[in-house]
Design a protein around this nucleic acid. Structure first.
Lengths: 204, 204
DNA sequence: TCTCTGGCTAAGCGCTTGCTTAGCTTCACT
DNA sequence: AGTGAAGCTAAGCAAGCGCTTAGCCAGAGA
């Protein structure tokens, strides 16, 4: 019933590290299902059938449905943080901010199914798993806050409320995961627009 | 088990039009539960027990769990649009934008439980109910887009991508529903901050 | 006083859920 | 050829789901 679709094809590269292939098919199926319907509305039978397997096969590779969610959420958070870390470059705070926002926004558009799970399914994680993921989330916002602080210090940014503005900049990119679909334009172009808007939000 | 809490107290004024009182208690219980766990993870038994009733009592007042969601979502959307309409005033587009963003943001903070249901539970509505709510959503974004267009026309705003910027301004406020909790500060102060940020995003 | 209506509960129905069990097949390695 | 592990399926279990049924009770109207 479920053939190879665009999302599964892109995911092939993203989830290359997941072995064996059957475990990866279950995982990409779960990403699509969780993004589409949410964790609670997704059944293990749905996930298994997207991977072309019987329901029981899921438990050969993952001990529970929640563990599948955690695997996705953890990797997604790590990927998002990595995107920010490698984008944080440029001669001035303004350049760095533009680069950060462009990359973070484009990632949320490009990987909007993963991003949807990362941003909106936290409540379904166990307390332990949530705590692990929360650590990465703090690192993500710290990355933005640092650039804003650097810009304030050298006088290129005028920010009255640093934590509040950090959250606002993050919100801009994160909310992309809520509404983005491929027909809404090129992720890179969206990233440029948002980089522009973010810069104007803070520049002195 | 569930006593009168802050949320229920505030909701008393908001949901005054829902009669009889038992139907209102079910509705406010559902708002809290849906906001906390999401629609799919909320059971009719949970909603009923928050209202201090047996599970079957829910069906005396509402024909289904989805109908309860629709009632909340429809009223929430209407309230959000009303907030925007009555805030759209001021001599210049910049004044109007500031007023709109401040009010819309403060509403999402003040009524963050309702807002959470409004913004993040659309997928659980039936197609018919979703269509009805989508009409209001279009009116909401049209309200923002109009002010931006007016500012562009009189030269006070510089906006390269009107629909994209409209969406970004909306995102700023909407995402508040995702992270806001009462200990994160005064809704009005947050509204002022966001009004400031939005104005800077677009001003020429 | 009797009856009707609105609001409620106890019990439970049919179904779906996450997950388990038992067992089959394939295949690398000896 | 024989063995063990890995990967899978058919079948099904206990629990929980949304919702229904049957009936109780208080209070208003005749």
């Amino acid at each position: 019933m479920h053939g190879v679709n665009v999302s599964a094809v892109t995911s092939l590269l993203v989830w290359e590290h997941v072995q064996p292939a059957a475990a990866r098919r279950l995982l990409t199926g779960a990403v699509d299902a969780f993004a589409e319907r949410g964790f609670q509305a997704t059944t293990t039978r749905d996930i298994a059938s997207r991977a072309g397997m019987s329901p029981a096969a899921l438990y050969v590779h993952y001990p529970s449905k929640e563990r599948l969610l955690f695997e996705i959420s953890l990797y997604g958070h790590k990927a998002a943080l990595e995107v920010l870390r490698s984008a944080d470059s440029g001669p001035t705070p303004a350049d760095r901010l533009r680069s950060l926002v462009a990359a973070f926004t484009a990632w949320h558009a490009e990987h909007h199914t993963i991003a949807r799970v990362v941003q909106y399914e936290l409540a379904a994680l166990t307390p332990d798993h949530l705590a692990e993921v929360a650590t990465i989330r703090r690192a993500i916002s710290a990355q933005i806050e640092q650039v804003l602080a650097d810009g304030v210090r050298d006088g290129s940014f005028a920010v009255s409320d640093l934590p509040g503005t950090t959250l606002a900049v993050l919100s801009l990119s994160i909310d992309v995961a809520r509404w983005y679909t491929p027909h809404r334009g090129d992720p890179a172009a969206l990233g440029k627009l948002y980089a522009d808007l973010a810069e104007r939000m803070v520049q002195a």
